Amino acid sequence: MNTSYFVDNQDCFKRQACSNVPSANTAFYPNRIDCPSRGGNSSVTPSLASSQVAPETSLRKLAQNKMLQGDYCEAIAIITCLLDRHPDNANDYNNRGFIHYQSGELDAALADYNKAIEINPDLAAAYNNRANYYAAKKELIKAIADYDRAIDLNPLHVRALINRGITLRELKLYDRAIENFDFALRLGQLQGQAWKERGRTHHLRGDWNYALADYRRALPFFPEGRQKQQIQAWIDEILSPFQF
């Protein structure tokens, strides 16, 4: 019942790139074992990336679009070509790690996050991404340490705050989890996610009235889809014993 959802980051593939993350308990990530990306040998992308008329920002945007389309091989190949140009770009290692993570290549993702942090030890987004990797692997203490580092570097890192709260909840440290969601709400960003996760924390702790209030606050922030359905299912779970 305690499904975690690690929040995505909207600034992926910009120059100050990416902090992500999908659910630690997502059941399936397609693993593109036929992907040619490790050698950067895509039949399309390297020729584009090697062109002097292809701005790097455009290539990052193209990689992002390929990833959103599920073409992880091509997205990784594009970022690999960018790294061939600039092998010390921590943001691109972070971006490539994110794509690897999305595609299910978790070990490759960790290697890229580690490289990003080696190049730029102050890249908060990479610590948040690596923490999500550790959370997905249920290495929760390592995850907390990386979320702490991300927040030390950027105290307004709302995604890291929410993700740290989720991980503290996994450890059943409910009061500390709620402190993180409260701070995230005060910052005024990703409020739907913060209300949702605070509600889930109250729910698991047995504070059902608080949980219902937070779930109902969260609902208007989400379009129709998986997350809204999940919140409604939790509301129904609380109310079902009282329905006759």
Results as ranks from 00 to 15, higher is better:
130 R>K: 02
60 R>M: 04
75 A>W: 06
64 Q>A: 10
177 A>V: 02
152 D>S: 13
74 E>K: 01
165 G>V: 09
231 I>D: 11
31 N>Y: 14
213 A>Y: 12
117 I>K: 00
128 N>Q: 07
93 Y>M: 04
42 S>G: 14
66 K>P: 04
36 P>G: 07
49 A>S: 13
10 Q>Y: 13
176 R>I: 03
211 A>F: 05
148 D>V: 10
26 T>F: 08
240 S>K: 05
15 R>F: 15
149 R>P: 09
145 A>V: 07
7 V>W: 02
106 L>M: 14
13 F>E: 03
150 A>E: 00
166 I>L: 05
159 R>Q: 15
96 R>M: 01
26 T>P: 06
149 R>F: 00
27 A>M: 06
102 Q>K: 12
15 R>L: 15
121 P>T: 00
89 N>I: 00
186 R>Q: 15
169 R>G: 11
124 A>T: 02
53 V>G: 08
14 K>Q: 15
79 I>T: 08
125 A>I: 01
227 Q>G: 10
212 L>D: 01
210 Y>M: 11
76 I>A: 11
193 Q>C: 10
152 D>H: 12
174 Y>W: 13
61 K>C: 04
131 A>C: 04
53 V>M: 12
70 G>A: 01
20 N>D: 13
195 W>E: 10
163 N>I: 08
28 F>Q: 06
237 E>C: 03
93 Y>R: 01
8 D>W: 10
192 G>V: 09
14 K>N: 09
10 Q>W: 07
139 E>V: 02
222 F>E: 04
186 R>N: 15
29 Y>A: 13
221 F>W: 07
92 D>N: 09
44 V>Q: 14
23 S>I: 09
209 N>V: 13
131 A>D: 09
221 F>K: 07
236 D>H: 04
8 D>P: 05
40 G>A: 07
179 E>K: 13
180 N>K: 09
26 T>S: 12
5 Y>Q: 07
37 S>H: 03
147 Y>D: 11
19 S>I: 13
239 L>E: 14
91 N>L: 04
202 H>E: 05
131 A>R: 05
132 N>R: 04
25 N>Q: 14
144 I>N: 02
230 Q>Y: 01
100 H>F: 13
22 P>D: 14
132 N>W: 10
204 L>T: 05
85 R>Q: 07
110 L>M: 11
40 G>N: 05
59 L>I: 05
216 R>C: 00
128 N>A: 12
57 T>G: 05
48 L>E: 12
34 D>G: 12
42 S>M: 08
206 G>L: 02
177 A>I: 03
206 G>S: 01
177 A>Y: 08
90 A>E: 06
22 P>R: 14
72 Y>P: 03
25 N>K: 04
32 R>W: 14
105 E>Y: 10
96 R>G: 02
171 L>S: 02
135 A>T: 03
90 A>I: 02
101 Y>S: 02
58 S>Y: 08
29 Y>I: 09
199 G>H: 01
115 K>D: 00
76 I>N: 11
150 A>H: 03
165 G>F: 09
99 I>W: 09
29 Y>F: 13
243 Q>I: 13
124 A>S: 12
15 R>K: 14
102 Q>I: 03
103 S>K: 00
105 E>P: 11
168 L>Y: 13
12 C>P: 03
198 R>H: 10
